[in-house]
């Protein structure tokens, strides 16, 4: 288990597994809240993917340290900056989804999808 194996292969496989939990959970879970959680896990997987892109072996924070020069000594800050925005997007999506779930709960009394759909048709 070398460092290289972990950082270049296993990490991305784990991210792929995490990403696939999203669609699978959304398809196979019946509870709307669980679907929402699966959606969140999927968004987090994308965020971790971006963060993994910014990492470098043996590099430090992207703040200039006197005497330490060269691009290989600093990690790439851009993916982190992008993911701040993506986290905000994920947060607001979750907020909207929770508001909708509250409404569904208030109007139908349940959060199980098949039950909601059955009551919707009545």
């Amino acid at each position: 288990m070398s460092k290289e194996f972990l950082s270049q292969y296993l990490l991305y496989w784990l991210i792929a597994v995490l990403f696939m939990i999203g669609p699978i959970g959304m398809i196979f879970k019946n509870n709307l809240m669980k679907k929402l959680m699966a959606m969140n896990i999927m968004q987090v997987a994308v965020i971790i993917f971006f963060l993994a892109l910014g990492q470098k072996m043996d590099a430090t924070l992207p703040i200039e340290i006197p005497g330490l020069t060269g691009v290989t000594n600093y990690i790439n800050p851009l993916p982190h900056a992008l993911m701040l925005t993506a986290i905000v997007v994920s947060l607001s999506t979750t907020g909207v989804a929770l508001a909708l779930l509250l409404l569904i709960q208030k109007k139908y009394g349940v959060l199980e999808e098949d039950e909601v759909l059955r009551r919707m048709d009545q």
Binding site: F19, G22, M26, L36, M42, Q43, A45, L101, V116
Partner: peptide, 15 residues
């Protein structure tokens, strides 16, 4: 309900 399902599917698209 329609909006919630659209939200789930749309977020898959966005991700």
């Amino acid at each position: 309900v329609a909006a919630f399902r659209y939200l789930l599917i749309g977020t898959i698209g966005g991700s």
